[in-house]
């Protein structure tokens, strides 16, 4: 069976095509303002890469903050659910998933079956996302890749605000004006975000194995800071930014559709007039 997963976030769209469970092709692109069109274009492009036609795809599942805009998707699942399925496919031993994208960071506790048990997201006034790092890289006049690399060279520890993105940016500007070394500022930014993300992850509890996905997982400097902040090992998959789309494709493969059927509450039977709990 051929299925596709489309993860359309605040900044980027990712597509994964599976054929009989194996990866056939994947693609990524910036969404821009016209998100639905961007998803459509990338989907076509990835199909071409896989040598497939549209009609050959049995099922498409979308996810991400703009997932519902993918008109041609058969279903849409919550991004955390997609993350859980994607990580479970790659690392069945994972019990905690941390996903940091351009606009949101979240922590997910997953069951041995890859279901979402609990979740937490970085809420308002939080400098804990990829967009913040990009803004800081601009302030430092370097690329994000450079920022990741140089931060690994720093041994200093400068406490920085990461609850409020505005405050955080102000502090970076202050540090620049104080002629603090770029590598130390880069590390301070990564440490601050790591602290923020770890605090969100602690809400769901840090149970290993811990997998970190999303665009920020490609930032070695941040990953180093996160590892130290949590004092735990973490697993980072190859192509961590594709895991959401992979999870959506997994969901497509397992036949998850949004249907209107009655269901019962997991773990409990409702008997009229009585409760077992």
């Amino acid at each position: 069976m051929i299925v596709a997963g489309i993860d359309i976030g605040g900044k980027n769209v990712h597509v994964v095509i599976l054929k009989d469970g194996a990866l056939a092709a994947q693609g990524a692109a910036a969404t821009g303002i016209q998100k639905a069109e961007a998803a459509e274009r990338l989907y076509e492009e990835t199909l071409r890469k896989a040598g497939l036609k549209r009609g050959e795809v049995g099922r498409v599942v979308a996810t991400g903050s703009a997932g519902k805009r993918v008109a041609f998707a058969d279903a849409c699942i919550a991004d955390a659910a997609a993350d859980a399925r994607g990580v479970h496919r790659l690392f069945p031993s994972a019990r905690t998933v941390i996903d940091i994208g351009a606009e949101e960071g979240r922590a997910i506790k997953i069951s041995p079956e890859g279901k979402v048990l609990d979740f937490a997201i970085n809420e308002k006034c939080a400098a804990g996302t990829g967009t913040f790092v990009e803004a800081m890289a601009i302030a430092l006049e370097i690329s994000v890749e450079e920022m990741a690399a140089i931060s690994l060279k720093s041994n200093t520890s400068i406490p920085m605000n990461a609850q409020c993105a505005v405050f955080g940016e102000s502090e970076v500007v202050s540090l620049i004006h104080q002629n603090v070394e770029k590598q130390d500022i880069a590390k301070a930014v990564h440490d601050a975000i790591a602290g923020r993300i770890a605090s969100v992850a602690r809400i769901v509890g840090l149970e290993k194995d811990i997998a970190v996905i999303g665009g920020m997982a490609k930032n070695d400097g941040f990953i180093d800071s996160l590892r130290k902040e949590m004092a735990m090992d973490i697993i980072v998959p190859n192509d961590p930014d594709f895991v959401g789309a992979l999870g959506a494709a997994e969901a497509a493969a397992k036949g998850v559709l949004e249907e209107k059927i009655a269901a019962k509450v997991v773990g409990q039977e409702i008997v009229e007039g009585e409760k077992t709990s």
Partner: peptide, 20 residues
């Protein structure tokens, strides 16, 4: 955003589907 979170909780953690 809140509706997305509620949907996640309801469909995933609670395993519910919409009533027909």
């Amino acid at each position: 955003r809140v509706l997305r979170l509620i949907e996640l909780f309801v469909t995933e953690t609670l395993g519910l589907k919409k009533v027909a």
